[in-house]
Design a protein around this nucleic acid. Structure first.
Lengths: 123, 123
DNA sequence: ATAAAGGCTAAACTTAACTTCAGGTCAACA
DNA sequence: TGTTGACCTGAAGTTAAGTTTAGCCTTTAT
């Protein structure tokens, strides 16, 4: 099954302009076109895009995602490097989660103050 | 106790340029200066900055932080609004954490594949 | 008294990640 | 056959959040 850019945009909830941008930036090296130049996304393209979104949403820069992709394209010899890259990003995500929960604590503390009658000091 | 911009930068681990930028953007309305115009940060300024960093690190735009600050300055009548704003941001943080843990799962799944001998397919 | 270290400003520059625009092509259907 | 809707490109514009630069002033230590 193949999908038009519009269908992919709806499926992944991304703007069409972003899909074109990712392609332009070389993040979709396997993406095929019709003779007349229209993009046709395969299931594999979509899986790859899902991974791109996952990495992007968790703060990996497109440059790095591209580097990862290039490792994938190079073949099985890069397995260790790819693993290393994902491990690093995993550590990054864990530290993000950590920061979020510390911030959450701070905010809960503020909110608790707001709930005590009359405690509305500055900050 | 009062602090110079350099001391604050070290304490909060922020570049001096960022501290000046925050001030320039109106995020430090209570910040005092010496006669000759040098910033002197009070303990309160530092607490406020810590909150700013907490909100900023968790994805709140400076514009919104500023809006929150202005509510704080307006006084106790804005208690409900401030509470509402923090509650919303709390919900945002929770959804962030959610996304991070879903992404973590995906990455763990990829990593598990890398650990199985010979499974180094594309993507 | 003077030099070094630290402070100040306004304005320009940077970066990532998109989005918008202008102008053109393609495909399907009434 | 023509018009409508979806697609294309290259180039320019946008936005947030800073950073850098240039030129100048102040404070402190020698």
């Amino acid at each position: 099954m193949e999908y038009s850019i519009k269908q992919v945009a709806e499926k992944l909830n991304l703007p069409i302009s972003t899909l074109r941008y990712y392609d332009r930036e070389g993040l979709m090296p396997l993406l095929k076109r019709t003779e007349s130049g229209i993009r046709k996304y395969s299931e594999t393209d979509i899986s790859w895009l899902e991974l791109v979104c996952c990495l992007r949403n968790t703060g990996m820069p497109l440059e790095e995602i591209k580097a990862f992709m290039e490792l994938c394209l190079t073949g099985s010899s890069t397995g260790e490097q790819r693993k290393e890259l994902l491990e690093q990003h995993k550590a990054f995500i864990l530290s993000q989660m950590n920061m979020l929960s510390r911030s959450l604590e701070m905010i809960n503390y503020k909110l608790a103050n707001y709930n005590e009658i009359g405690i509305f000091h500055i900050i």
